[in-house]
C-alpha cells in the first residue's frame, strides 16, 4: 500500500504561553524565509494502485461518484431539493462520524447585511489561537494539514509581504521588533477567484461571502492562482479528521470536504448567519479581531472604519476587500 507524500506545509506550533512582554533577547531567531524549503525525500513513494475503484470516507467510489452526476449546482436547487440533499448528507455524516448532533444548514443571506471584518495589527500578538479555532470550527483536514488563516510575522519598519515569515516558531510571542499580520480570505467586493472559475463553482453571496459548492468544483485551481491573498486551499489528498468534527455545519461552509476540491474562509457562514461571531473573533485573546455588518451605521465595524487608521491589503489590485486592517 502506497503512502502518498505528506503536505510540506509545516505544522503550526501549538499556541505558546502568551506574554505581552517582549521575549527575552536570548530567544532563537526565526528560521529565515530564505532558507529554501526544499522538500525532502519526495517522489520515491512506493507505488501500487490498490484497487481501481477505491472508496472515499463516505464509502462512495473515490474516482467517479455517481452522486455527483445526479446533483445540481447549489443555486439551481429548489428548496425541496436542498432539503432532501441536506437530509441525505446528514444521514451519511452522522453514521460516518458517529455523531447524531450533526446538522447541515442552508440558511441564506439576510437582507440588509454585508459582512465586514477588521483586524487590529497593533494588538495582534501572533499566538495563532485564531488558526487553531478556525481549524476546529470549520472542520479543516488535519492530515494533509489545511489552515485558512496564515499569520505573517513582519519586521517592524516594513509592510513588505516578501519579507514576512509565516513559519515562526518561538518559545513566546510576540517576538521583539516584530508585529503580526494574520491573512485569510479578504472577501473581496470584486473577487478575482469568482471571475476565473470556469464552472461558477465559487460565487459571492448577497451578504458578501464568497463560497464554494464542493460538489460542483472541478479542482482546476485557477482560483488559487488568481487570489492575491493566498486565501484558497486545495484538497491535495483525501482529508482526514481526528475523530470528531464540529456538528454545526453549513452546506456552503464547514461541512466535510473531499479530495480534489477547493475550500476557503467563509466568515464562519454557519455562525455568522445565525447571529454569532466567527470562531477567530471569539478565540482572539487580545480582542484584535472585529466583525460586523457594514450596512449598519451603528455597528462596531463602521465605527472602527470611521475613527481608526484603516488600510486594506494590496489595494492596488482593485479587489476591494471587506477585510480591513487598522491601528489604534
Amino acid at each position: 500500500m502506497a503512502t502518498p507524500d505528506r503536505t510540506p506545509a509545516r505544522p503550526t506550533p501549538e499556541p505558546r504561553p502568551l506574554t505581552l512582554k517582549p521575549a527575552p533577547p536570548s530567544s532563537k531567531r526565526p528560521v529565515s524565509r530564505r532558507d529554501f524549503l526544499r522538500r525532502a525525500g519526495q517522489g520515491t513513494a512506493a507505488l501500487a494502485v490498490t484497487t481501481l475503484v477505491p472508496k472515499d470516507f463516505l464509502g462512495r467510489p473515490k474516482i467517479f461518484s455517481k452522486e455527483d452526476f445526479s446533483l445540481k449546482h447549489f443555486v439551481e436547487m429548489t428548496a425541496e431539493e436542498k432539503a432532501k440533499r441536506v437530509h441525505e448528507l446528514e444521514e451519511i455524516y452522522r453514521k460516518r462520524f458517529n455523531d447524531d448532533r450533526i446538522s447541515i444548514s442552508t440558511t441564506p443571506a439576510k437582507e440588509g447585511v454585508l459582512w465586514g471584518y477588521a483586524l487590529n495589527i497593533g494588538k495582534c500578538v501572533g499566538c495563532r489561537r485564531c488558526v487553531k479555532a478556525c481549524v476546529g470550527e470549520n472542520n479543516q483536514s488535519r492530515d494533509p494539514e489545511i489552515e485558512w488563516i496564515r499569520v505573517l510575522e513582519m519586521e517592524k519598519g516594513t509592510m513588505e509581504l516578501d519579507e514576512s515569515n509565516c513559519y515562526y516558531d518561538h518559545e513566546r510571542v510576540p517576538e521583539e521588533d516584530h508585529y503580526y499580520m494574520p491573512v485569510q480570505c479578504q472577501q473581496c467586493e470584486n473577487p478575482p477567484c469568482v471571475k476565473v472559475c470556469p464552472t461558477t463553482a465559487t460565487w459571492q453571496e448577497k451578504d458578501g461571502i464568497v463560497v464554494v459548492d464542493y460538489n460542483w468544483c472541478i479542482g482546476c485551481r485557477f482560483c488559487l492562482a488568481a487570489c492575491p491573498y493566498f486565501a484558497r486551499r486545495f484538497n491535495w489528498g483525501e482529508p482526514t479528521w481526528n475523530g470528531a468534527v464540529n456538528p454545526n455545519m453549513h452546506y456552503l461552509g464547514n461541512r466535510p470536504r473531499f479530495k480534489g476540491v477547493m475550500e476557503k474562509c467563509t466568515f464562519c457562514i454557519q455562525r455568522s448567519r445565525e447571529g454569532q461571531y466567527t470562531a477567530c473573533v471569539e478565540a482572539c485573546p487580545v480582542g484584535a479581531r472585529k466583525f460586523g455588518n457594514l450596512l449598519d451605521e451603528k455597528s462596531e465595524i463602521r465605527q472602527l472604519i470611521a475613527t481608526k487608521r484603516v488600510f486594506r491589503l494590496k489595494e492596488e489590485a482593485g479587489t476591494h476587500p471587506k477585510f480591513f486592517y487598522f491601528i489604534d
Binding site: 474516482i63 485551481r221 492562482a225 491535495w236 483525501e238
Partner: peptide
C-alpha cells in the same frame, strides 16, 4: 495516473504554494 486518481494530486510535487 490511476495511482494519482486514487490518492489525489498529493502524489505530485504541487502544493498550495505552487499549485500548477
Amino acid at each position: 495516473y490511476l495511482y494519482q486518481l486514487e490518492h489525489g494530486l498529493i502524489v505530485t510535487g504541487m502544493r498550495d504554494q505552487v499549485s500548477w
